[in-house]
Amino acid sequence: MFAYIEKIKEISNRLLKESTVDLIIGFRKGTVPMMNEPCFAKTPEAVDGLVWDSNCGINLANYLANRKEKIGIVSKGCDSRNIVTHIIENKIKRDQVVIIGVPCKGMIDRHKIEAMFDTEIEAVTEADGRLNIKGDGVDTAIDKKDVLQQNCTICTHRNPVIYDELAADLVEEQTDVDKYEDIRRIEDMTPEEKWEYFEDLLSTCIRCYACRNACPLCYCPTCFVDESQPQWVGKSQNPTDIRTFHFLRAYHCAGRCTDCGACERACPMGIKVRILTKKLEKDCLELFDWESGLTLEKRPPLDTYRPDDPDDFIK
């Protein structure tokens, strides 16, 4: 981890000193444990605050949309796929970004760690795949692989798909992972069971929109839930309104979502919102052989028409 940080700092320093970029977007330590926050460094001095560890789950591509300056951005596998998506969707130009690729070994899920202890966690340090957890009356070590974010455990694109600089050697990609076990289980349910499942899944939602704000794909100037003329969705805590918000948001991400997990990470209630986007990701893979954000050469399935597009649902 330390080598990663030094290399990120060195690259960032160089890019800023040579004026290749106007700012670097990276991570700095957050004010609470396990919550690193985005850092916008505009001077070589500010680069000193940059960090890299297993708490960098936020998707930094979120801060790129519509920016005009030249930007160096620290980017793990999923961030890089979202940068590709941004370039395809004309949210940023390729020559505007210098991508500092960071091969990623998975981010830790603070919800999981918080659930393991009754007390507030004051510090989490890591070394060699082990996490040291400290809190009031707690001083224990756990394996990092047991508390990874669920999307990281099934990730098959840990290395950045595009990059200009690299902060470390590429890591081995995971093969042999069953990405869609949970989705298949829901697909096999009867309509009534599905209704109950989603009712339960979304029952704790407080409509804070943290999932939307953390999502790099959600860059609409006015989100459909904020629109008041016309008002597409009720703003209440009503289950129908909550459901409409979550399902529509997921559909807006169809063929674009990279399963970076930023939404789920941001959720204060621990709702597994990725269940919705993952189903669409699975459909895109099965129907259009499409994984989002892997290449600048191909247009996404939802903005192209092919005569052999599946149309079995039209009777």
Binding site: P191, K194, F198
Partner: peptide, 25 residues
Amino acid sequence: MGIEPGRLHFSWISSAESVKFVDVV
């Protein structure tokens, strides 16, 4: 999301295909 398959229906009907429209409806 828990809507029965028979409740939702997609069809491609030309404006000239009135008979098909009636049948489908």
